[in-house]
Each structure stands twice: as C-alpha cells, then as structure tokens.
C-alpha cells in the first residue's frame, strides 16, 4: 500500500515539474502557432544557472530568481530572432533548432559535460511524516509549487484582462486582431513569461530529472507529449497532460525501465486516435 501511494506521489510530483515545463510551450503554441524547440533549452539554462550560482556561494533563493530571469532573457532573444521568419514553419523550426544547438554547446563550454547535481535548500531535506508513509519534503514542495503556479495561471487567464485577451487570441487570432488586441505584444509577453517558467522548472525540477548535456532534447520530448496529450493552448490541458504523462512514465520506469520513453508513444497513439485535439485543446491549424 505504502508503495503505491509513494508511486502515486512520485508521479504527481514529477507531473508538476512537467507542468512547469510545458505551461509556456502550450501557450506559445496556442498564441503563435509556433513550435519552439528551444523550450527544453530553457530548462537546461534554468538548471545550470542555479547550479553555477549556488556553487559560487550565491544564496539558493537568489539563484532561483536569477535562473528565472536568465531564461526569460533567453526567451526574449529567441523571440526577437524569430521575427524575420514570419509564419514559415520550416524557418521557425530551423531557427529554434539552431538556438538549441548554440545553447547546448555554450552550456557544455561553461559548465562542462558532467551531470550537475542540483542543490536543495536545507529545510527541504529529509522526509515528512504523512501518517501512512514518510515522503521526501522536496517532492512535496514541488507539488505545492506546481499547484501554486497552476492556480496563478488560471487566475491570470480567467480573472485578468490580459488573460482574457490571451484566450481570445488562442481561440481566434484574426478576430482578436479585429477587436484591437495587439497579438505581437501579447505573444512576446507569453513567450518571455513561458520561458521564465520553463527556467523555474529547470531550477527546481533539475533535482528530479537531472541536468546534463542532452537533457534539453529529453525534456523537450516530455513537454511535446504533454502538449499533444493535453491539447495546445490550454493551461488545464497542460495540467491534465502533465499528470497523465507523470503517471505513465513513473509506472513504466517502476516496472519496465527500458520502455519508459517508448510508453510515451503509446499514450500519444491512444490520444491521437481517440481525441486528436488533446484532452482540453482544439485542433492546431
């Protein structure tokens, strides 16, 4: 029994990291119809900035903040670079792929090829007695941060003016333009904020997923599958997709580790067959 509860909690805490990771990706897909391949690189940047700063004696909370700012800055640079490519998918893909290479190589130069062991704050070391079982505090912290971020994004989307504009653009970019929403500004803000959140996912989630050369593409795959399963442009979809992928991945790793990545294919196959638009989204044009 304990085992199963622990497994479930593992799945959920992993799912929350996935949610932080994919929230930005799903929003850029929804608003810009853009597949940003550097999204996994933002995770890498977030994790490495945290690692390097903490190693040089910076307070961890400050390092987290710096990681978010650094990735948001990366996001801004990528957004500016993307401007001349217009809406050409091939060119967008090439560009973000190129930036992915550049960031990966720069990270290799600066941090090196060894896996970085990410720090945890002292008060989150050890376990917490949940009655039925003792469970690592840090994972519970991840669940809290994930849910908190989900709450914040929901509030933003449904309770603020900018959030309503965002939903309007996701639903119908043309109409949104018609009622005077400037989609470029909105897309820029979404892109930068989404990058920052992905950076946070690296800073916090690197403890679980690791931070090493190649993690960028690996987490990109997770984020893609989450968005495919959840449906593009939807925070709720990203949350649902993250939990589903968290569960499938955790359970597969527990019982058939070699098939962990392959199980993603099964989930994709199922969702694309049964519900091509994803759990909560609408079909991407």
């Amino acid at each position: 029994m304990d085992y199963w509860i622990a497994l479930l909690l593992n799945a959920i805490s992993f799912g929350m990291v996935l949610f932080l990771l994919s929230a930005g990706l799903t929003l850029t897909l929804g608003t810009m119809r853009l597949l940003n391949l550097t999204h996994g690189s933002f995770f890498l940047v977030g994790a490495y900035v945290t690692f390097e700063l903490e190693r040089h004696g910076v307070d961890l909370a400050l390092a987290w903040g710096a990681a978010v700012l650094a990735t948001a800055l990366c996001g801004a640079v990528v957004f500016v670079l993307l401007r001349p490519t217009g809406e050409d998918h091939l060119r967008q893909t090439l560009l973000t792929f190129g930036v992915l290479f550049v960031i990966a190589d720069a990270a290799l130069v600066i941090v090196g090829g060894d896996p970085a062991i990410l720090p945890r704050p002292g008060f989150l070391e050890g376990t917490l007695d949940l009655g039925l079982l003792d469970y690592p505090k840090y994972r519970l912290f991840l669940v809290a941060v994930g849910l908190g971020m989900a709450g914040l994004l929901f509030w933003f989307q449904y309770r603020t003016r900018a959030g309503m504009m965002l939903r309007a653009v996701v639903d119908d970019p043309e109409m949104a333009r018609g009622v005077g929403i400037n989609p470029t500004v909105l897309a820029a803000v979404t892109f930068v904020v989404g990058a920052g959140i992905a950076g946070l996912s690296g800073a916090l989630g690197g403890v679980l997923l690791g931070a090493f050369p190649g993690v960028d593409l690996q987490v990109l795959l997770f984020a893609l599958v989450v968005v495919i399963v959840g449906g593009a442009g939807s925070i709720g979809g990203a949350l649902a997709g993250s939990v589903v992928i968290g569960l499938v991945n955790t359970v597969t790793i527990a019982f058939a580790p070699g098939l962990a990545l392959f199980s993603m294919f099964g989930v994709m196959l199922a969702i694309l067959t049964l519900r091509p638009q994803g759990i909560a989204g609408k079909a991407l044009a």
């Binding site: 670079l81 001349p84 490519t85 060119r91 967008q92 090439l94 560009l95 792929f97 190129g98 930036v99 992915l100 290479f101 550049v102 990966a104 190589d105």
Partner: peptide
C-alpha cells in the same frame, strides 16, 4: 557553428 548556420539560413 552548426547552430549558428541554422539560424543564419533561417533568417
């Protein structure tokens, strides 16, 4: 270098 080439070709 390859990454920069990607970016240059795209732009």
């Amino acid at each position: 270098i390859l990454g920069i080439l990607f970016v240059l070709v795209a732009i």
